[in-house]
Design a binder for these strands. Sequence first.
DNA 1: CTGAAAGCGCTTACAG
DNA 2: CTGAAAGCGCTTACAG
Lengths: 338, 338
Amino acid sequence: MPSSHRPTISDVASLAGVSIATVSRVINGSSQVAGQTIQRVQAAITDLKYTPHAAARVLASRKTNTIGLLLPEISGAFFQPLLRGIEAGAQEAGFDLLIHTTDDTQSNAGIRRPLGEHNTDGLLVFTDSLDHKELRRLHSIGFPVVLLHQAPPKSLMIPVVTIENQSGAQKIVEHLIVVHGCRRIVFLQGPEDHEDSVWREKGYRQALKDHGITFNPSLVLRGGFNPDESRQALTRLLSNGKGFDSIFSGDDDSAIGVIQALRQAGWRVPEDVAVVGFDDSSFARTLDPPLTTVSAPTERVGREAVRQLVRIIRAEKVEPRLILPTELVIRQSCGCQA
Amino acid sequence: MPSSHRPTISDVASLAGVSIATVSRVINGSSQVAGQTIQRVQAAITDLKYTPHAAARVLASRKTNTIGLLLPEISGAFFQPLLRGIEAGAQEAGFDLLIHTTDDTQSNAGIRRPLGEHNTDGLLVFTDSLDHKELRRLHSIGFPVVLLHQAPPKSLMIPVVTIENQSGAQKIVEHLIVVHGCRRIVFLQGPEDHEDSVWREKGYRQALKDHGITFNPSLVLRGGFNPDESRQALTRLLSNGKGFDSIFSGDDDSAIGVIQALRQAGWRVPEDVAVVGFDDSSFARTLDPPLTTVSAPTERVGREAVRQLVRIIRAEKVEPRLILPTELVIRQSCGCQA
DNA sequence: CTGAAAGCGCTTACAG
DNA sequence: CTGAAAGCGCTTACAG
């Protein structure tokens, strides 16, 4: 790129016949400038097709006007509404968004941190995408961070935005028990140590307990919150015969694999086995049968998380814990009629 | 954030007892430094938990080491593999990724361009997310740009990465004609002026022509590449009775709406109407019935686009047009057996 | 192999 | 309302 072609604030200043300080003022509206002067400066800007150099502004003003998002991956239907909410929130607040997906395969060697205090004003951190050590470091220098779907490490006061996992799970399992008379309910866990999964399992156990059903560990499998792992886990379980009457698949993605495995083994859903999910992903209503699930306000999580983060950046008060409500969505995969 | 807490290159230099130039050299490996000196500097860096300030490096070195991605939205199953590929490509090349979704509702007033030469070394531009005027401006200053799924405006030589839309569409329509004896084939267009849609329609018409079927404009509807619009379009068409034997729904997202509309009207897929899509989205195989479609190498598109862009940034030669192959994927929604 | 110094393009007290 | 000047934290010729 021929950088000589690129106009700077000085070019604008000389063309308009003012100082660079004045140009800066009209660009930022940071103090009173005479109407005529404004006109001249704006004309010069238009003439030169001038765009302020972002890095120079950052360096001089010590604000990046950018928030960072750390994700474990960009895939799965779950992240779509999350990203949509975050994008929207950032736009509303006038911040740019820098996204980085952490990849376990790459070692963290070297100084260069992809996202941090050197290129953002604050960070949104999704479950397990930043180790506790780095979280501690950011906290120790007072850098704004908001956690998504993940509690902070012990004794660190970092704001969190998440959803009512436990009560949502409890409600849907209760629905299986009370409305459909289920007693032997399989639960498919998410990835190991995944907090959403941990809380959903608590809700599952609570519902069993409330209705006098003994918890049976052999009905709990790891499904990893994805179709493949879930299909395999269920196929393995089915090889011992169908020792269950229903499945709470942990999330909607898993439900896809679960239904495939059941079909392949010749079982009908919901006639032979009731299946329910969690999230109310975009595809849930178009599954066959339409999936009974728990609606999670994922887009709102994204939006609210940005709001919280921006408040921290502006040194305003924030909620230490924002837990958004979930809601039971009855469709047909549990055995209810349309 | 207490910026006083943040160590700078000077802090590292004094702790290590060297000049800041030397610190810069060990960080960047930009020239020979004595082994002992390196050790001392690295110890100081570790000690202070020093991270170089990104904006300062950008300003001094005149490179951002960042590529920008302009998208019309982040949603729809289509964007997942695209983002995955772009993320991967950027990581491989050692570039950061800045994402901005353009929103038609916001006017482009003001100087502040979200993504451009002031904060990136190059831009990936997806269909219709940047107007021709801005594209011209970027081209005129020699700024690296790669277009995705979109040809450049007339006379601008901007590299493109896209897929074989026409031949893919032609193959799948041909399959309907030759294997399933279809003659009255509905085509659902994407959004207006969407290039993928234009090429797919060409493939559709070519296949008809090759097999002596007269093109019937009343069988072409706008489906917008989304389930809702497609469902409505088809429901409208069905109100005149079922004057067709099959549907090429333009993309997989549309196929969802198409199948819903058919079911609601009491028609079976594929017994009464064959339905095929395009993309081979993640959900295509789990639809009911599993969707016959055209597999698009969307992840590869993302990855290759980054490669091209990086080559331009490095002033290396690039392909002016990279067109990745598509492939017919036969499942059951066309009437074939499993 | 190392340092002193200029410069990247802005913002922001400080004066007036 | 406006300007001169210092400074943000780096990189990079230029000397030695």
